[in-house]
Design a protein around this nucleic acid. Structure first.
Length: 554
RNA sequence: UGGGAUGUCGUCUAACGGUAGGACAGCGGACUCUGGCUCCGUACGUAGGGGUUCAAAUCCUCUCAUCCCAGCCA
């Protein structure tokens, strides 16, 4: 699809004026958490730009805080981005690759009198920083000599000082309205083991200092980040202006994505897992890419979704319905159909020969002529969906009801003659007749039937477990809680309903990751818990249900 | 008088002084061996006031609303 947005306008202009002849973007995750659907916007944006403009997108891990980061996350992030369909070839970088260069630049800053070693404690520093409305005050260590600063900084690196006892700070302006400019810390002491550099360093550079220089070292042309970094841009530019860096990338901010019925912060996702509201980080209800992957969402649908939501600077919350649309749109063309009954009601065809065993041919996917056909066993006793029968049916109902004729998908027309009930009045069975002339779903007299329902043989079927997933929350914006409530009060108790159903036998050897449309029910994916003895399916998304909508209005 | 940003159909987004367009959702209909898909039709919007201009979503101005910032996190 064609996309137009303010970032592309900027790039078009830069290419037109000759500011750049080629663009380089980057996706810079910190390896301290799993990726979620919100990240996919940034991933699709950065890699998509590189793809469309014939440029390059780097993957760079922003690993400057060893106490939070771990290889576990670099591995999962790499897996997720690849799964989404993007690749960076040999352009895989780590901010930690630049530690030595970053250190050299810091000495330059000191030599130029633009950075100083500060002995203020954490609390003291906070006190002198001022508030949002009041300016801060200069550190008493601000005017140390270049020689002293250099000596102290080198000794910081050498490990002579305790954690927290000293920092290296940029000398900018303690009275700036932008608190980021109030002599920000650029190095802190941490005696921590880094997942890549090991114990080589005991001082680590801060984000603001590291990010802009990393961008410059990699020749990034457009450094695209989210809105909350807008306040940091003056600092980004300040560092690059002070230092002899190879280029000065342009930072551009866009609004991060929010999605209805979803929480996306790392903290909240962690709580959902740790406190058992979901089973794991790849629980199919989680907004993590791992969860969505297990849920059966396709990378194609997520990329399409990314294109459709666009990019802008106004904060927004996207309807989850759009993602569902993208999913159905993609799956409709690709998922083979299958018949599964989740809530069985037995139907006996009284005029069907006792000893007849037929196989019915069925189209795998009417949207895809190449998908071929399969055979489904038919028998005198079958199961239909309990919902598809109504004893007192309204006029507009054209599924099964006493005396009404319906079509069994791919098979025969049947008419309900009798309803069998137990002592409590529950319907236990339907006695029907079938029209042998209607085999394959049509009759010589071209008789029309309004309703077509799905079914499985009551004899030749396999039991399957089906996990019906819905939104994790009942409120579009769970964070917008009423008085006295929290987001956890809006957890949907029915976000997972597990049912045991019956499927056509062909599903026996399904493999994890296979996707299907269970006719009239929705799209499903085989879960990794699946075995040949007991296939397990996750519902990806339901089909649109016009009848349910009509029923609601009645 | 801290600083920074943002306001366009219900939602997301386009327009770069010249017909406010698209998508999802909604509504109505056609088609259909899935009440799916597809197709057709339809309703709905420039936060508010003032100004500049032949012409303003777009430029100026005031107001209002919302979001972000006081980690040795990113």
């Amino acid at each position: 699809m064609e996309v137009s947005n303010f970032i592309r306008n900027i790039i078009d202009e830069d290419l037109k004026t000759g500011k750049h002849t080629k663009i380089i973007t980057r996706f810079p995750p910190e390896p301290n958490a799993y990726l979620h659907i919100g990240h996919s916007k940034s991933i699709c944006l950065n890699f998509g730009l590189a793809r469309d403009y014939n440029g390059v997108c780097h993957l760079r891990f922003d690993d400057t805080n060893p106490t939070a980061e771990d290889v576990e996350f670099v591995d999962s992030i790499i897996e997720d981005i690849h799964w989404l369909g993007f690749d960076w070839k040999d352009k895989l970088f780590y901010a930690s690759d630049y530690y030595e260069k970053l250190y050299e630049y810091a000495e330059i800053l000191i030599q130029d009198g633009k950075a100083f070693v500060c002995d203020l404690t954490f609390e003291e520093l906070n006190k002198t920083r001022g508030t949002l409305k009041e300016p801060g005050t200069n550190s008493p260590y601000r005017d140390r000599s270049v020689e002293e600063n250099l000596d102290l900084f080198r000794r910081m690196r050498a490990g002579e000082f305790e954690e927290g006892s000293k920092t290296l700070r940029a000398k900018i302006d303690m009275s700036s309205g932008n608190v980021n400019m109030r002599d920000p810390v650029i190095y802190r002491i941490k005696f921590a083991h880094h997942h890549r550099t090991g114990d080589k360093w005991c001082i680590y550079p801060m984000y603001d200092y590291t990010h802009c220089i990393s961008d410059a070292l990699e020749g990034i042309t457009h450094s695209i980040c989210t809105l909350e970094f807008e306040d940091h841009r003056p600092l980004y530019d300040w560092f690059l202006d002070q230092l002899p860096v190879p280029c000065h990338p342009r930072q551009i901010e866009f609004a991060r994505m929010n999605l209805t019925y979803t929480v996306m912060s790392k903290r909240l996702m962690l709580k959902l897992v740790n406190e058992g509201y979901v089973k794991s980080f790849d629980d199919p209800r989680m907004p993590s890419l791992a969860g969505m992957r297990r849920r059966g969402f396709t990378p194609e649908a997520i990329r399409d979704f990314s294109d459709r939501i666009g990019v802008a600077k106004a904060s927004s919350i996207v309807d989850f319905e759009l993602l569902q649309f993208c999913l159905r749109n993609d799956l409709n063309l690709r998922a083979d159909r299958a018949m599964v009954v989740l809530d069985p009601l037995k139907v006996t065809l009284e005029n069907y020969p006792d000893d007849l065993n037929e196989e019915i041919e069925a189209l795998n996917n009417p949207e895809n002529p190449d998908s071929g056909t399969r055979m489904i066993p038919f028998s005198k006793e079958i199961y239909i969906e309990r919902d598809d029968f109504k004893e007192d049916a309204p006029n507009k109902w054209f599924r099964m009801a006493p005396g009404r004729e319906v079509r069994l998908k791919h098979a025969y027309y049947i008419i309900c003659k009798d309803v069998v009930k137990d002592a409590d009045g529950n319907i236990t069975e339907l006695i029907c007749t079938y029209d042998p002339e209607s085999r394959g779903g049509g009759t010589p007299d071209n008789r029309k039937v309004k309703g077509t329902i799905h079914w499985v043989s009551a004899i030749y079927n396999i039991p399957v477990e089906v996990r019906l997933y819905e939104q994790l929350f009942t409120k579009p914006d769970p964070m917008d809680a009423e008085e006295g409530k929290t987001w956890l009060d809006y957890l949907n108790p029915e976000s997972l309903v597990t049912v045991n159903g019956f499927a056509e036998p062909g599903l026996k050897n399904t493999k994890a990751g296979n996707r299907y449309q269970f006719l009239r029910l929705g799209y499903f994916v085989t879960d990794k818990d699946s075995t040949p003895e007991k296939p397990v399916f996750n519902r990806i998304v339901t089909l649109k249900d016009t009848w349910a909508k009509m029923e609601k209005k009645m």
